[in-house]
Design a protein around this nucleic acid. Sequence first.
DNA 1: AGCACGCCGACT
DNA 2: GTCGGCGTGCTC
Length: 727
Amino acid sequence: MTADSPRTRAAAVLVPMPAERAYSYAVPDGMQVVPGSIVRVPLGPREVAGIVWDGPVEAVDPKKLRPIAHVFDCPPITEQMRRLVDWIAQYTLSPPGMVARMILRAPEAFDPEPWTEGIKRSDGEPDRMTAARTRVLEMANDGMAWTRSGLAHAAGVSSTVVDGLRAQGVFETVMIPPRPVVAAPDTSYAAAELTGDQGAVAAGLRDQVEADRFAVTLIDGVTGSGKTEVYFEAIAAALDKGKQVLILLPEIALTQAFLERFQNRFGAKPAEWHSDLPPRMRERVWRQVAEGGVRVVAGARSALFLPFNNLGLIVVDEEHDPAYKQEDRVFYNARDMAVVRAHIGGFPVVLASATPSVESRVNAEQGKYARAVLSARFAEAALPQLATIDMRRSPPARGGFLSPVLLGKMRETLGRQEQSLLFLNRRGYAPLTLCRVCGHRFGCPVCSAWLVEHRFRGQLVCHHCGHNERRPEACPECGTFDHLVACGPGVERIAEEVVSHFPDARTIVLSSDMLGGVKRLRLELEAIANGEADIIIGTQLVAKGHNFPNMTLVGVVDADLGLANGDPRAAERTYQLLSQVTGRAGRTGKKSLGLLQTFQPDHPVMRAIVSGDSEAFYDREISEREKAALPPFGRLAGIIVSAATRPEAESHARGLRRAAQVAQDVHVLGPAEAPLALIGGRHRFRLLVQADRKADIQGYIRALLAAGPKVRGSVRVQVDIDPQSFL
DNA sequence: AGCACGCCGACT
DNA sequence: GTCGGCGTGCTC
């Protein structure tokens, strides 16, 4: 805000760096700024873009006060967005400047898009006609403005023909406004016919949108139950009201398939927003969102920070997806911040999932969220038949990992010329290699993980930090040759086993470390969809998005994987993943089958998957957490200490732990219990803090950080608040 | 987060 | 003798 003093006007400006408060800048005479204005200000040796902020301007040494260099010709960041920045900064204990930085991620967009020069038919007539000229004039007689190249292309002539006509005064020069990044959606383009409960849920959402009322609705329904069709009607209502709409999708799910589905309903695609967007497109989308020209954005979590000026609805699809959580710089969960955004804006938010997160289910049970269950009735035909394979009763052959039951079904599937998918969430050949003579195990020299053998590449790789080395012939400990054994399966090893059983089948392995990168992967997925493979062996990435029309068998090689890793969310995550994977079968209309290889067929996760009845599973999961006072019943925050070396990080975390004057109702877990990981070349250490109320945990962490050892050198401390029921 | 300043190892 | 490694400190 600006403040008038006898000599200089000053404004508070939030700059994109970890400053705890807005800095003060002088406003030169004649310059107009309002809260939300995007300005260029000097900061140290350079100039940066900042946002003029609300609140009193802090008095600062007049010698330090530097003037705002420039006010961008750009719609100001709205009050709702500014309140969101303050809220997130406060809640996540991040510097507000760092939160503001997430808004300012399209630097070229702060200036208006340039108008381009075009031409339009005028009164002038050409000196003589040719065939080419006739075609050009036929096109141009619509009286619309054309670009020169566009007109030439449309008429099928060279641009010299157009230039020749222009020289004779046949065209006048006009300026053409920037082209919209997407066409306007048409809410009446292809309204879906909704049945029974779908219609009722859609009507409820429409009412919320029309009432401009904050409300959270959790739409809970399996694939094919019409979740998307239902929230499309809420989107239509918001658009009819002249509002903008944001659809959040987990990054991987930003697939062409969703955009096409939207287009089939609204006649135009939504604008996309994700990290892979080319810079030029990024700027145009940002700008057109700020100006209100873009009505619907489908985006990854960062789309929450787009400068909407008239937002009326947010949809968070696959709300349980961990990709919504950002775990660097500012730690936040976009799903929860979307709820906060809607609360600030006073409009509804829709959370959709076939496998909701436990915290959303609890929020629904506590009445904070409404829960709309869509029955699977309409999807039943498409649901695969699911069963467990008890690996104690049907063990694999010696040295193998696939049970005869699964192999038998694969053979039948091959016989029908249909596709099978084997899912194993582990890259490489084997997760552990050891020496049969001396027992030496190959561990990562950098971190604590075992090295994973990648036989195809002839390497031992650390999946934690990326360290890799050649697989040696002899044991480095005892020197014995040819006695290294691979323990456990990875997708490469499963592929080996499959090929030995089905040498004539076309088998393909899909994992994120595939040679050739994303491009190759996309081609392979397309090839599979076209039926160019019989057996697909894949890691997590096959679980999402893609539809394989001929896939009638899904086998989960190790359904227990991930259940015993000490994560309080292990069961929930496994349930969600297995649900998604088994859902890859049965998109065909044909009879399809999902088989889970497990040593614990009576585990609640397996029972929930096989029976399709998730209610009991959620009830149990909720009561387990209640007993353990884990989220969503307690609050859990992580203090992340990161340093270049592991001892440094550990000693610092111990220092913080020592400094902990454990307050009532607050527990500090770790360091021993906390997971240690190496990310981006830095050792990260998470100290878990648990408390019952939001205020407790934030106050406690503030006190702890103040009392703890001074953070200096290359040690960094960040705070990750696990946001549960914050409303 | 950038970016400059500043002090110790391997090279044009 | 310099180039450059990243530790430290500052930005209205």
